[in-house]
């Protein structure tokens, strides 16, 4: 499969995303933010980092970049898009995902492992996560507190758009397990069509044993399974 990994000037997890895709045996290509086309990409990763320095608001400027117009079109055509950390912020700013990410409740940057529970298996991003398996993934953000108004939250719940929630080692959605104050312990969501998703934790930093966790693979493997399913269907 061919992944496109966006590269904003201050993306700093772009190479990590490329590396993770390669570890999983697939191809990834960096696409510069001034580009208008995603080429032959079958899936897009909007990686972590600070896009344009993010002095204004995380992702606030990135949404206006040429490459994001291409991503919007790609998403409108049903293409798979995953935003990680800053990429999640960019996707909410761009209106591709509901809600917003605000300062962590203790106002500090947090870099630590968290446990994640997949709230549903019904998405290309969670389909490969076994039931009762809590993912152990690192987070690294200062603005990861998920916020949405009540109507939006209700809609997210009704449509099963909440994909991941922070939990403790036993899978309980406790307040202590919530690193940033996100509403409903939300760590990641998808759009209504379920082809665009974003999450604050970094699955690309957890794809190899030597790094301490391989749980991140499950998210990418879900995307790959969906792409392979689609290309098989096309062939048939």
């Amino acid at each position: 499969m061919n992944f496109a990994v966006l590269q904003f000037p201050a993306s700093n997890c772009d190479q990590d995303a490329v590396h993770a895709v390669q570890v999983l045996g697939h191809r990834a290509r960096l696409v510069w933010h001034k580009e208008h086309s995603l080429g032959d990409a079958q899936a897009v990763i909007v990686p972590g980092g600070f896009s344009y320095g993010d002095y204004l608001r995380c992702g606030a400027i990135a949404r206006f970049s040429p490459v994001m117009q291409a991503v919007k079109q790609f998403a409108d055509n049903g293409g798979l898009v995953l935003g990680i950390c800053n990429g999640f912020q960019v996707l909410t700013e761009a209106g591709l995902l509901p809600g917003a990410l605000v300062r962590n409740r203790d106002l500090q940057f947090h870099c630590e492992y968290v446990f994640l529970k997949a709230a549903t298996a019904q998405s290309p991003f969670t389909s490969q996560i076994p039931a009762e398996k809590w993912l152990r993934l690192p987070i690294a953000h200062g603005e990861g507190c998920y916020y949405a108004d009540e109507t939006t939250l209700a809609r997210l719940q009704a449509n099963q758009q909440i994909l991941w929630q922070y939990c403790d080692q036993q899978g309980n959605l406790t307040d202590r397990a919530n690193p940033n104050g996100s509403l409903l312990n939300i760590a990641g969501v998808c759009n209504e069509r379920r082809n665009v998703a974003g999450l604050m934790p970094h699955p690309e930093r957890a794809c190899e044993r030597i790094l301490g966790s391989e749980d991140g693979r499950l998210i990418f493997e879900g995307m790959i399974a969906a792409l392979e399913g689609a290309s098989r269907a096309q062939a048939a």
Binding site: N12, C13, Q15, D16, H19, A20, G48, Q108, F109, H110, C111, P138, A140, H202, E204, R205, E208, L211
Partner: peptide, 8 residues
Amino acid sequence: QYDHQVRA
């Protein structure tokens, strides 16, 4: 408070 895992 330091991102100590970036760059994988």
